[in-house]
Design a protein around this nucleic acid. Structure first.
Length: 138
DNA sequence: ATTCTGACTTGCT
DNA sequence: AAGCAAGCCAGAA
């Protein structure tokens, strides 16, 4: 996983407003590079210094082991959740998920421009890196 | 070159 | 609802 890739993913994550979310696959699609699994790896590598809870599975489920922390963030942001009330008790250990249909983020036009800029920048940086790699072998 | 692994996704039961 | 199989992309062994 290239550092450039992780950077680009995090730049997009930073644009997601409170109360909204994107799936791993959404971000991969916005960047036009890599797939959902790459975005997942990038998030895993980036630690807790980000608003990681705004990126989750397409099903609305948050990554294993992070349900309690995510739930408190969702509560403070008013993120819409699905699931029986009893599932949300004590740390949210039960079967609940984010209501993706209601809070999946759709960037406005100007924000989409910024995302496209991030994507273009990523591609050129990645290209330069691969050229540098080729020269290493020679 | 192969095989394994992962904060994934979709479709089918 | 929940589990499973396949497909997916890349990095690591």
């Amino acid at each position: 996983m290239r550092a450039e890739y992780v950077d680009a993913v995090l730049q997009v994550v930073d644009l997601i407003p409170p109360g909204s979310v994107l799936s791993y696959g959404d971000i991969a699609e916005l960047l036009g590079v890599g797939g959902a699994r790459q975005v997942g790896s990038a998030m895993s590598a980036s630690g807790s210094t980000t608003t990681w809870w705004r990126v989750l599975r397409a099903s609305g489920h948050v990554p294993e082991g992070h349900t309690a922390a995510a739930l408190t963030n969702f509560r403070s942001e008013g993120t819409p959740l699905l699931g029986a009330p009893e599932a949300l008790r004590d740390g949210g250990s039960g079967p609940w998920r984010v209501d993706m249909r209601r809070c999946r983020w759709s960037p406005d036009d100007s924000t989409m421009d910024r995302i496209e800029h991030i994507a273009r920048s990523l591609e050129s940086r990645l290209h330069r890196m691969s050229v540098a790699d080729d020269e290493m072998e020679a």
